[in-house]
Amino acid sequence: MHDSFAHAGGRLATRLLDVTTDLSALDGRGWWAVVVDYEGKVTCARFGDVRPAPLPEPRVPWRGPAPSAWRSSLDRDAYEAGVRRIREHIERGDVYQANLCRVLTAPLPGDPDPVALAVRLAEGNPAPHAATVSLPGLSVVSASPELYLSRDGDVIESRPIKGTGATAGELLEKDYAENVMIVDLVRNDLGRVAAVGSVSVPALCEVEEHPGLVHLVSTVRARLAPEFGWPELFAATFPPGSVTGAPKYSAVRIINELEPEPRGPYCGAVGWVDADRGRASLAVGIRTFWLSAGEIRFGTGAGITWGSDPRREWQETELKASRLIALASTPGKTPDKEN
């Protein structure tokens, strides 16, 4: 088994120094790998050796579950019923949008090497915010396309994704409306800890191409007020708006009613913080696998609005999952770019 390590932002971190659940440690010293579950469980791991490097060589080849071995926390009927329930909440004025997710789980026998899975994802589904964190009791392999928070000094930025299609031509008016709603939410979240007047939206509803699909992505930027640090920044913005809904409090309540299993690292935060240089990049934990106790898990979901069609929303969750599940399964042939 590999020793504890993290790979993120093109850097390989080794020589684990300490692990804490205290977010205020990120305002101190050192380079930290960070995993925060959607439910709020914090893991911050400080490493002593950090250098630009590719992923290390896998100890053994990746052997994942059979494609048929994956089970979903919500089957198609239950998921589509959940979409209809959210539309009822929207009709009553409880919420404007809520993200409905399901967790896929499969057995993973033996002593799997997370590096081998990370290498497979890097080759078959390269992602701008990919990260791998391997610690005792925690292995997370993420191919996330979405930036939750970056930091450069006091400049903080979020790039929420809302709106997904196989091609740009398949994006609907509903996708653009979703994105604008979440941008408003992120602006309000950042505004709680931002210097007055510093919140801006440099880009709105840009189309980004990723392997097998396209996303609508916006950019929200602000300056962190000097009296606030990482605990306050998380308190104001977590869980990410793009994976909860608007208003966030109501969306989270509805999500808890409809989703039968915890999301774990999925929809949480995965990435790194360099406290010495005042820089950081934390992804939203989507397109993310986590390995524990002989099982592998992966989450997928969709944002539900009044304009949502239950069948189409289920298909969106399938689209988001299909390529990654194929890569993580054995036997597995790397899908082509048009999957």
Rank of each mutant, 00 (worst) to 15 (best):
E257N: 06
I254A: 09
P226I: 04
A246V: 15
L224Q: 08
A225R: 14
T244F: 07
E227V: 11
P260M: 10
F238E: 01
F238S: 03
L233C: 08
T237K: 00
A246G: 03
V243H: 04
P231F: 03
A225Y: 04
T244C: 13
E257P: 09
R253M: 09
A251Y: 11
A236I: 05
W230A: 07
P240E: 01
E261L: 14
F238H: 07
G241V: 14
R253A: 15
R223W: 02
P260W: 11
V252C: 11
P226D: 03
Y249T: 14
I254Y: 06
N256W: 06
E259F: 11
I254N: 04
G241I: 14
F228C: 11
E261V: 15
P260G: 07
F238Q: 01
N256T: 15
W230G: 08
N256L: 14
L233K: 07
V252D: 00
V252P: 00
T244G: 02
K248N: 10
E257G: 08
L258Y: 04
S250T: 12
E257I: 12
P260H: 07
I254L: 11
L224W: 10
E257F: 10
I255L: 08
E259W: 10
V252F: 00
P240S: 12
E261D: 13
A225M: 05
G245H: 09
V252I: 15
T244M: 04
G229M: 06
V243P: 06
R223T: 13
E257S: 09
A236P: 12
L233Y: 05
I254G: 05
P247H: 05
E261G: 02
A236K: 00
G245T: 12
G245N: 09
A251I: 14
F228R: 14
P240F: 05
N256R: 15
L224K: 09
E227W: 02
F234H: 01
E232F: 01
F238K: 02
G245R: 10
A236L: 06
E261H: 11
E232H: 06
G245K: 12
R253G: 13
R223Y: 06
A225L: 07
F234N: 00
I255A: 06
P231Q: 04
A251G: 11
K248Q: 08
E257D: 15
A251K: 13
P247N: 05
K248L: 08
G241K: 12
T244N: 02
I255C: 02
P240K: 02
T237W: 00
I254T: 12
A251R: 09
E257H: 07
L233M: 12
G229Q: 10
G245S: 12
A251N: 09
E257M: 08
E257Q: 14
V252W: 00
S250L: 11
G241P: 11
P239S: 12
T237H: 00
P240A: 15
P231E: 03
N256D: 15
A246Y: 04
S242N: 13
G241Q: 10
S250R: 15
R223N: 09
G229C: 09
G241H: 11
P260I: 13
P240H: 06
I255E: 01
L224V: 10
P226T: 04
V243Y: 04
W230L: 09
